[in-house]
Design a protein around this nucleic acid. Sequence first.
DNA 1: CCGTATCCTAATGGATACTG
DNA 2: CAGTATCCATTAGGATACGG
Lengths: 109, 109
Amino acid sequence: MNYKEIENCPLNVFLKSFSGKWKPIILYCFFKNGNMRFTDLWRAIPAVSKKVLLQQLKELEKSEIVQRTQINTFPPEVFYGLSGKGDSLLPVILIIEEWITINKYQSEP
Amino acid sequence: MNYKEIENCPLNVFLKSFSGKWKPIILYCFFKNGNMRFTDLWRAIPAVSKKVLLQQLKELEKSEIVQRTQINTFPPEVFYGLSGKGDSLLPVILIIEEWITINKYQSEP
DNA sequence: CCGTATCCTAATGGATACTG
DNA sequence: CAGTATCCATTAGGATACGG
């Protein structure tokens, strides 16, 4: 088993797309609310700075999990939401949710 | 939707247990090889330092995903491997693997 | 409203030497 | 062999102000 092989293992590839303090939370918002305007998303996650929120959204966009839509009014309206690939995560999330429940896993304070 | 609620969403709780550069790789080794001596694991992941490898193992132990077994010879033999909870991750990993394959997702160089 | 720039702090990870 | 201690480098994230 060489090192390149283990580095590209599915779990690693998967987790790398979601590494970032706010990414899971962002996705959760989209699963619950569908597309959201940037400012509304920000209001839903008040603890993050605008800069970082944007950063994480860009990275999710690059992974093609999140889609950005801009309407060129002034001031501009920008919506973020799940792409098709993002939507396809739902069954994965549900399995994870089930695993969490079964294992009664609690996040640490 | 208040903030505490979204912070404890399953995806977030799940991902927090695996946040760490080497944790997914460590788990992959255990899934492939079963229990492993510390040094053998280290040889399988040559790019990580001993200190950090130990650190990540301890965190996985704390999440009860990994189990440590020590045999008190001299020099001591210490085995690391999946706990029952760790084993129960297998179906989750398989779904993730399937998702990765379907989406032909490639890790970035 | 949306995004960028700057500056700063905290957290994570790496190199190396040492011990039982 | 397994683990600890130190010290250092890199990165991620946060505060704030400004611009289109």
